[in-house]
Design a protein around this nucleic acid. Sequence first.
RNA 1: GUGGGCGUAGCUCAGCUGGUAGAGCGCCGCGUUGUGGUCGCGGAUGUCGCGGGUUCAAGUCCCGUCGCUCACCCCA
Length: 453
Amino acid sequence: MARPTPLSGFPELLPSARLVEQHVLDVLREVFELHGFSNIETRAVEPLSVLLRKGEIDKEVYVVRRLQAEAGEESGSSDDLALHFDLTVPFARYVTENAGHLQFPFRRYQIQKVWRGERPQEGRYREFTQADIDVVDRGTLAVHHDADMARVMGEALARLPLPGVTLQVNNRRLVEGFYRGLGLEGDVLTGSIGATMRAVDKLDKVGARGVADLLAQAGLTQAQADGALALAQVRAGAGDLVASVRALGVSHELLDQGLEELLAVLTAVDDLPADRVAVVADLSVARGLDYYTGTVYETRMRGWESLGSICSGGRYDALADDGRDVYPGVGISLGVTRAIIPLLGKGAVRASRPTPTVVVVAVADEAHRRDADRVASALRARGVAAEVSPTAAKFGKQIRFADRRGVPFVWFSQEDGSHEVKDIRSGEQVLADPASWLPPAADLRPTVVLPEA
RNA sequence: GUGGGCGUAGCUCAGCUGGUAGAGCGCCGCGUUGUGGUCGCGGAUGUCGCGGGUUCAAGUCCCGUCGCUCACCCCA
């Protein structure tokens, strides 16, 4: 069979890269659980009607159907199954389905693959892993949860083997109120307010002049466009946010509410290590997804801004609704694949070795393989990952076997029942006992290394 | 979905106005008769993405196709 070519957008990692990814997943799980999030896994598919509920028909959704469809079974109907394209919509469905069994406010984390049929590029994949945290309540959801999401994800980001990040926070109520104060009107999504938000969201890409052009096209007056652009250019911390916005001289009830909420988020994250996770109010951030209502988050890695946001989310006051109750939520989602594959590709992060093995037990000849098995078992019993050499080749080859895969130690057993272990990096070889020998702690497991740092 | 670039050895790539395929690294062997790495010597490896066309002759030119990749759009 001819060698298959890679499938664009469906990345597969080599063992050493996968080790880095697994480390990331381990850290995320640990941090999320420390903050009391329960884990769930939802099925990979949802009825198309659930995924498209928000009217986002343009989503590149993968539909799943049997190769041999039943007679009368047509594709394109709302009953078709489709692969989920995020974890938030399936979570909303899960909440309404299981509301009777859940305690609210419900905190959950979810780390799964998602699928989007978009054109792949660096940092953009068709199959990728997201790590989501969300809090959902019944009726109303207190605002302090908005800050909590930023703090939990910030703590996780600070502990991951990533460059420092900037967590950009904004509030849609603030922005909408500001625009209404400028005299803009209409529906948030379809009217000039929505158009203005989408234009302003491109500030970092097309610049102030580009945004001004877009705003003119959207029919804003010069004064309105100037005001919207001035707001979008605000970058502030907890100390100067209110003054920066007030200085623009616009007032509206919604603006006041949003400003208060945004300030609450900024002041609640002051315990994050600023060198790893800087949290700033960035009033140009709008987010495309239409169901966000208040706080919105985006995250960029310093030095890797071209990847776009690696971690985004926000508040949705009515994402889930079972007809009797409404379930507001707030959450944030880390694009694990987007964050780490580019780093791996450019060598900015790697594993110390590609296998978990610490010791290769040499086999003198096949008649002594069982002896080697017993040595390996004794080592494993104390948590030392050991594998027995696959061949009884010359010792030089067995050492080379270990060296090639970065295994630091090779074990030799003598005919007289004594044992020696060799550190193949230094060449040092010493007497050792299978029942008690341990490697240095730093060698026990593969580690993640940052060559730059 | 729209537009650009690129497909040659395991990897990175060279290959001119057409003349029957190369380098570096890696791999294998020997020097080194059961302790690797360095060094030296030797060796193996290609449907030149695929299909068709032009030609005495195609990796090279033409057409088509598939794949990868970059940008736009959008997003993690």
